[in-house]
């Protein structure tokens, strides 16, 4: 759509700007202020310079949390994106199956995040949970509260359960926008199933898939509540992702300075990745 240039449009944006600015700018400025200072409580602060940044950048704890976070997000994307596309491809296109699939698949998205954690905690308990009990019954030694590997397995399975539907819904919406004529043409050409997917469906889904990857990246990179309730970051620190570690530092130990410095580094990383994705998305949009 060709838009007209109109600077008065700013008036329409003012309410949004004010609401978000209050909520975003003031806390962000505060975080910046804290990150350069030492606190003694009672609003007494002392200038520390870049000490906290140096400390965080060199600390094992931060490297480990960041490493875990990147590994987690990477695994999540690797599983959820192909799985989501696969399920969307096999979903019915019309009939009674469509609303049934959509309603049931959206269910996990609308459950409060701590309930998701609590639910999976109960589900995976080795003695009374269905998953834990079944795995132990068929011979695995499964206990997610004791063994780091099992904790990871449960956390990832939980996230797959929770968020794959988002990828499914997005891909399904993308697939639905393809006109039947494309498929007919492919059939006449005798194209294989793979060729149809590669040359017709995938290009059409490119836009929604970029969006799906962006959303899944953002949300899995800031994941907090579900693993906090499920494992509490444990056993040990095995599933202490960035947000969990950050809240532990800020609210648990009141190390405001280091926590603020860590927040900023965290925020910069998210900002960079999101900018890259956003630019790519806009680039695609301009082309199509």
């Amino acid at each position: 759509m060709n838009k007209t240039i109109n600077q008065k449009a700013w008036f329409f944006v003012v309410p949004v700007f004010v609401l978000v600015a209050f909520n975003a700018a003031i806390p962000l400025m505060t975080v910046v202020n804290y990150s350069f200072q030492e606190t003694f409580g009672n609003n007494v602060f002392a200038w520390e310079g870049t000490r906290w940044f140096k400390q965080i950048l060199l600390s094992e704890r931060f490297h480990d949390a960041l490493g875990r976070q990147i590994a987690f997000t990477f695994i999540i994307l690797l599983i959820q994106i192909p799985l989501g596309i696969g399920i969307a491809l096999t979903m019915p296109k019309k009939g009674w199956g469509v609303p049934v699939c959509l309603i049931l698949m959206s269910m996990p998205l609308l459950i409060p995040w701590n309930v998701v954690g609590a639910m999976w905690n109960i589900f995976a308990l080795p003695d009374i949970g269905f998953l834990g009990y079944s795995l132990n019954a068929i011979g695995f030694d499964f206990n997610f509260t004791q063994q780091p590997g099992d904790a990871w397995f449960t956390t990832i399975l939980m996230d797959v359960w929770h968020w794959t539907s988002l990828v499914v819904l997005l891909s399904y919406a993308g697939l639905n926008s393809i006109q039947p004529a494309y498929y007919q043409a492919a059939e006449i050409d005798g194209a294989s199933r793979w060729a149809t997917f590669r040359y017709i469906e995938l290009p059409k889904m490119k836009k929604v898939l970029t969006l799906a990857i962006l959303l899944r990246f953002m949300d899995s990179f800031m994941i907090y509540t579900e693993p906090f309730v499920l494992t509490g970051g444990g056993p040990g620190n095995a599933t202490a992702f960035l947000s969990i570690d950050l809240v532990k530092m800020a609210l648990g130990q009141f190390d405001l300075g280091p926590a603020a410095a860590m927040s900023l580094i965290y925020f910069f990383i998210v900002l960079l990745v999101c900018w890259v994705f956003y630019s790519l998305m806009m680039k695609n949009e301009v082309k199509s």
Binding site: M222, L242, S243, L246, V247, S263, Y266, F267, L271
Partner: peptide
């Protein structure tokens, strides 16, 4: 995109 954990305090 901002992690809520950053803003909580």
């Amino acid at each position: 995109m901002a992690p809520p954990a950053v803003f909580a305090l």
